[in-house]
Amino acid sequence: MKIFPSLISKEYEVRVYSPLHIGAGIVVNSYPDEDIKMLEEMAGKVRRHIIEMIYGAGSGHPGGSLSATDVLVALYFMEMNHKADDPKWEDRDRFVLSKGHAAPTLYACLAESGYFPVDELKTIRKIGSRLQGHPDMRKTPGVEASTGSEGQGLSMGIGMALAAKLDRKKYRTYVMLGDGENNCGQIWEAAMSASQFKIDNLVAIIDRNKLQLDGPTEKIMSLEPLGDKWKAFGWNVIEIEGHNFREILAAFKKAKETKGHPSVIIANTIKGKGVSFMEGAVGFHGKSPSKDEYEKAMKELGGD
């Protein structure tokens, strides 16, 4: 059994204005090594799909897709209850990709889960495809919400989570936000209402890759202290390293144990994670790789 020190969020546990005087606490991890290895392998596969999709389409958002990969892989292949052969199963956990531009990551996870053939991934962004540039709940099996205009997914998640409570359902709702998306006023409207309504079956995950389209988040529109802001809005804040599966899974567990408050996981990530020349590169927010870059990226990701 291991303890993950990064989960002991000292900053938050001492704050008197914390709605929960529990601190982030210590989460005991019990995931076997083989599970973690499986997740890491899947993440590699998903990253290769992402590069292939964006290269094939000639457009898309590699940076934010790669940074979000590990969290989505943990959700789809470990954390969430869902059935690929029954996408509308009433009791499934819901996932809303509020940062809709990371659609390739979502599609790769859905395809690998079995919602549609992996081969279909190459149709992304092409005319007549079920895989639109941004997620479309009416076209793609497994997609829970149509997103793409930043700032709206958390509100949608609130509706889903409240519906679960009304229906006395056990399913949980996960929403992934971009960090730049925290610029949007609607995020804070949603944050306020989620704690007002005590929506503890809702988990927001912020893909904190520290870059937005125009540059570093702290330069364009400063977010820090981001955790304190969410805490002040009444959320249980859990901060982790967003490429470490043990921390990601521990954070989901911690969120599940939190009653009476919504939880937000600030996942510290690297934009472009896994491809050396895309890591931390603003230029790859919304640009497809060239042929050389594509080949190099695939090699780095362990592709043929």
Binding site: A145, G159, L162
Partner: peptide, 10 residues
Amino acid sequence: SACAGFAAAG
């Protein structure tokens, strides 16, 4: 948007 979420949940 929350109403959209409600509707998406039936």
